[in-house]
Each structure stands twice: as C-alpha cells, then as structure tokens.
Simulated scan of single mutants.
Amino acid sequence: MVIPVHDVNPARTTPWVTYGLIAANVLVFLAMPGTVGVPGQSRLAQTCELHAFLDHYAAVPRELIHDQLPRLVPTGDVAVGPQGPGCVIGEPGYDKSPVLSVFTAMFLHGGWLHLLGNMLFLLIFGNNIEDRMGHVRYLLFYVVCGYAAGYGFALLNDDSGDPLIGASGAVAGVLGAYLVLYPKARVWVLVPFLIFLPLRLPAWLVLGFWFALQAVYSSGEGVSDAGTVAYAAHVVGFVAGMLLAWPLKPGTPPPPEPRGLLFGRRARPRETW
C-alpha cells in the first residue's frame, strides 16, 4: 500500500470546505466517548458510553434498509450482575432517524489511524476537486458520495446490525472524481520497501491501485479484517464520485507538466532546436 503525501497540482482557490470538513471530523472525534480519557472513569464505563453513542449516531444497515430500530440499546451505564459488570441495556431515550444517521456517521471514526488516514487523503485530493466544482457544489458532492457509500454498503449487508462509521465513503468519492478529472497529475507517495521510498507517480496509477485493493478486499480476499472494514462502501463511494465528476471532465484544465524528479530520478531536459 502506498502512502500519498502531496500532489503536483496547485489549486487556484483556497479549499475552505475541505479545511472545514477536516476540522469538523477532528472535533467530533475528540468529542466521542473514550477518545479523551476522563479521570476516574473505568475502561468498561468508556466502552459502554461509546456503544450507546454509536447506537444513537452511527448508521446501521438493518435500520437503513428495513427501518427497524432496536427496542433495546446500551444506555451508557454500567451495572454489576451475577456474571460480573457489564453495560446496561434499556429502551432508547432518543428518536433516531436512519436517514440522518448516514450524515452523522460520516464524522465518526473508530480510532486515530482511521481518522488520520481519511483526512490525509481528503487534504491531498480534496482541494483540486473543490477548486473545480466550487465550494457549494463540492460540499453537496461530498455528502452525496457519503450517502451513496452508506446506502450501497447497507444494500449489500441489509441484515447487519453493526454500526457503520467514518468519512471513508465520502473521501472515496473525492478520489474517484480526482481520477476522472486529473488522471495525469503527479502524486508524491511513500512506498514501504525495507524503507519508505519516495516516488512521484501518476494519479491514475496511485488511485487505480487503491481502488483495485478496495475491490479485492470487499470480496473478502487477501485481508483478515474484511468484516470490520466497510470496503464495499469505499468501492461504491469511489464509483459515485467518478460518475458525478464525469460531466466536468471536458472543461477541466490539465495539471501542470512536472519538472525535475520523475519516479524518484531526475528527468533529462529536452533538447531544443
């Protein structure tokens, strides 16, 4: 897996929406139960609060497709029973909208690695898509891709009661749009091979390889945690982003022709006659 660090494709405008989305994701993550430890609170209490939080704000495939809300959910409290301490289960003290939960789930993440990975891709590739679409259309595009990814995953896993969280589906839509609009843009990546090798590769290769991995992983092949990562949501979001960006391709100016280092080596200057 390659790690992108920068693209050679300057934007003409400041990507305020991209910056705002990154800030919102970070702030929401810091506000989630268990992210910042509370003095004197046990690990079990944090886990119970997190489960209750996710039941309220995460998207659940069974709820999205069948509109079946659970009658009993974790309340966030801890009780000691015959089998030892555990989370209290009770009737939900809130009204949940499955449709709205897809939106709130876009800002929830399961850990620092999950958050930082999504925000890195959004920071590198989102500015050019925002620049091409404009701030308002880009924000709508981001949300639509997130919804397409959420409902696409739910249709493929309609009996699942596991919470679906993360900005991955919406960010995958940004990657799909970038592949359509700027396939020849160069992207600096780090390739782990004994050490991290810096290479400058075309976007079609970087993003095409990323999409191929997600497609393979979504089938359960080649990865042991396929049941805990919603790879199918990444695939659906990516395809949605490609389709939505396709009408903009004819009027998109090409990225600047890179000079200097190419694939880790210095390119030869062209002779002029």
Rank of each mutant, 00 (worst) to 15 (best):
A149W: 07
G93N: 04
L27V: 12
V143H: 11
G90Q: 05
V171A: 11
P74H: 06
G173H: 07
V229I: 10
V99I: 10
I65Y: 03
A23G: 11
M119E: 15
P253T: 07
M106D: 04
G20F: 01
F29K: 04
P254G: 10
T47R: 15
L175W: 01
S224N: 08
G241S: 03
A58H: 01
S160D: 14
L194G: 11
D158R: 00
H56Y: 02
G34L: 09
R268G: 08
D55E: 10
P258H: 08
A58W: 03
P183V: 08
T252V: 07
N127M: 13
V38Y: 05
L122W: 07
A154M: 01
P74D: 05
L261V: 14
A23I: 14
P256N: 05
L205N: 01
G34A: 07
K184G: 06
A148M: 13
G37L: 15
V229N: 08
D55P: 00
M1N: 11
G241C: 01
P85D: 15
D131S: 11
M242T: 03
P269L: 03
R259M: 13
H114N: 14
G241E: 04
G169A: 14
S219D: 05
V17N: 10
P255N: 06
L164E: 07
P250M: 04
F29S: 09
A59Q: 05
A226V: 02
L54R: 03
F121K: 02
T272Y: 13
I129A: 11
A149F: 04
A24C: 03
Y142Q: 09
V239A: 09
L50A: 14
R71V: 00
L155P: 07
H234Y: 14
A58Y: 02
A105T: 04
V17H: 10
D162L: 05
A172G: 14
P4G: 05
V28D: 09
L123Y: 13
I89L: 14
H234I: 12
A230W: 01
H66F: 02
R62L: 00
A233E: 09
R266C: 08
A149H: 08
L261K: 13
P183W: 08
L122T: 06
V28L: 08
L50I: 11
K96Q: 05
V206C: 03
L156A: 12
V102I: 10
R43I: 10
M119D: 13
V206A: 06
V236D: 11
V26G: 01
Q41E: 14
D131I: 05
R270P: 02
P258W: 09
G169E: 12
L21E: 06
F53P: 03
V239R: 02
L140G: 15
N9L: 08
L27Y: 08
F209C: 09
P183C: 04
Y231K: 00
